[in-house]
């Protein structure tokens, strides 16, 4: 049973509102979108960067793995708890969460958190190349979902995640605690961020 919430995104080009769905599951349709839409869009972006002569240092930051390994991992998302945002019949973003981790921030160390193992917006919603994303708000929607799940699980909204370098500002601005680069080499020095129960309460407040 997939729960569907109605949410609203903002059209990047016109600034108008866009009705969208937040679903508390990642299903086959998302993997198909990833394979048939996200990846080609990413390739098109790389092609554009080359044609514009953008130096490689300014390309989207990337990891050591290749697409085959990433594809295998994305296929594996079906086995975990996750969320996705749908608009326009397409997957606009996905997140996978884990409920077995503990908090590290001193004020809540050891308490259970919802750990965001993975959160990504579709390439056309990513701000690479300085062009406007097709939809704004996808990342925030997925983050909100993780916080809400944390509340539902009795974790009081506490969440944790490892931010990609280009996204650190986003998580700082959401009020999360920056605990610095993870010492575990498995995380490739990504900075670890945590949201406290208090921050979560503020985040979810209806103004």
């Amino acid at each position: 049973m997939v729960d569907v919430s109605t949410i609203y995104l903002v059209d990047g080009a016109t600034g108008s509102e866009v009705r969208a769905e937040l679903r508390d599951s990642i299903e086959d349709a998302q993997l198909v979108d990833w394979q048939l839409k996200w990846r080609p869009a990413h390739d098109a972006l790389i092609r554009e960067l080359i044609q514009k002569g953008v130096s490689r240092q300014q390309w989207p930051q990337s990891s050591h793995w290749d697409w085959r390994r990433k594809a295998a991992q994305v296929q594996g998302l079906l086995a975990f708890r996750g969320f996705c945002v749908l608009a326009d019949g397409e997957t606009q973003g996905m997140a996978q969460v884990e409920l077995t981790k503990s908090a590290r921030a001193p004020v809540q160390a050891g308490k259970p958190i919802v750990y965001i193992e993975y959160l990504e917006a579709a390439p056309w919603n990513s701000p690479e190349l300085g062009r406007a994303p097709r939809y704004r708000g996808v990342g925030t929607a997925l983050l909100s979902a993780a916080i809400a799940l944390s509340v539902e699980e009795g974790f009081k909204g506490r969440i944790g995640l490892h931010s990609l370098p280009q996204a650190e500002d986003f998580y700082r601005r959401r009020g999360m605690v920056d605990l610095g680069p993870d010492p575990d080499p498995g995380h490739q020095h990504l900075r670890y961020f945590e949201m406290t129960a208090e921050q979560a309460r503020a985040f979810l407040t209806e103004e």
Partner: peptide, 17 residues
């Protein structure tokens, strides 16, 4: 508020360029 921010989290979100 999200504006044009990048949002990726977790190693899986990094794309192999």
């Amino acid at each position: 508020q999200e504006g044009d921010a990048a949002v990726g989290a977790g190693l899986l979100a990094a794309n192999p360029a």
